[in-house]
Amino acid sequence: SISSRVKSKRIQLGLNQAELAQKVGTTQQSIEQLENGKTKRPRFLPELASALGVSVDWLLN
């Protein structure tokens, strides 16, 4: 799922939720909701993929 991929990649990069949120241009709460499965397809998906160094396709599939 996107939530597990985001969380595992974030941890692999040594980032906390607030640091990832800053790179993406969103809030820590938005990252938390995404990782908890409350958000399925965030509006900041391209920025998120870029910050994590992955493709949008990788996040979604």
Score class of each variant (00 low, 15 high):
Q22H: 11
K23L: 15
A21S: 05
Q29C: 09
T27S: 13
W58L: 04
L13F: 03
K9H: 06
V56A: 08
R5G: 03
L20C: 04
S30I: 13
S1R: 09
T39G: 11
L59S: 00
R43S: 14
P42V: 15
S30F: 13
G53P: 00
L34Q: 01
N16E: 10
P42N: 07
L45R: 00
A18K: 12
I31Q: 01
V54C: 06
N36I: 10
K40R: 11
I2N: 03
E35R: 00
N61Q: 12
Q17V: 13
F44R: 06
S3Y: 03
L60A: 09
I11D: 07
G37I: 03
L59Q: 00
L20A: 02
L45P: 01
G14H: 06
F44D: 04
G37Y: 03
I11H: 10
Q33C: 12
L60K: 09
I31P: 01
Q28G: 07
A21F: 00
L52S: 02
A49Q: 01
V54Y: 01
G53A: 06
V6D: 02
E32C: 09
I2L: 15
K9P: 02
T39Q: 11
T39I: 15
S8Y: 09
E35V: 01
K23M: 15
S8F: 10
L15K: 03
P46I: 13
K7E: 09
Q33G: 09
A51E: 06
Q33F: 13
N36F: 07
V56P: 09
Q17M: 11
T26F: 03
K9R: 15
G53N: 09
E19K: 04
G53H: 08
K23Q: 10
G14D: 06
E47M: 09
P46K: 15
N61T: 08
N36M: 11
L13E: 05
Q29P: 07
N61K: 09
S1K: 09
S30N: 13
N36Y: 06
D57S: 09
L59V: 04
T39H: 12
D57G: 08
P46H: 14
A21L: 01
Q28S: 11
D57F: 08
G37A: 09
W58H: 05
K40E: 15
G25N: 09
T26H: 05
L15Q: 04
Q28Y: 06
E19V: 05
T26S: 07
Q22N: 10
G37E: 07
N16A: 09
G14S: 05
G53L: 05
Q22S: 12
L13H: 07
E32I: 12
G25Q: 06
P42G: 05
S50E: 14
G14A: 05
K40I: 15
N61A: 13
S50W: 10
T39W: 07
L13A: 08
P42E: 05
V56D: 06
K7Q: 08
A21M: 01
R5D: 02
T39M: 15
N61H: 12
I31D: 01
L60N: 09
R43I: 13
E32W: 08
E35Y: 00
K38C: 15
Q28M: 11
S30W: 15
E35P: 02
L20H: 01
E19F: 03
R5W: 03
S4Y: 07
D57V: 05
F44N: 08
S8D: 12
A49F: 00
Q12H: 09
F44Q: 05
G53V: 14
W58D: 06
N61C: 11
Q33P: 01
N16M: 07
N61Y: 11
T26V: 15
S1D: 15
V56N: 05
A51N: 04
R41M: 15
L48Q: 00
I2F: 10
Q29N: 12
N16P: 05
Q29F: 12
V6K: 01
P42H: 09
E47S: 11
S8R: 10
I31W: 00
R41D: 12
T26G: 05
V24W: 02
Q12M: 10
E35I: 02
S30R: 12
A18P: 05
L34C: 05
L20F: 03
E35A: 01
K23T: 09
L60T: 13
W58K: 03
E19N: 06
S3K: 07
P42D: 04
F44S: 04
W58T: 04
L13N: 07
I11K: 09
L60C: 10
G25F: 03
L59K: 00
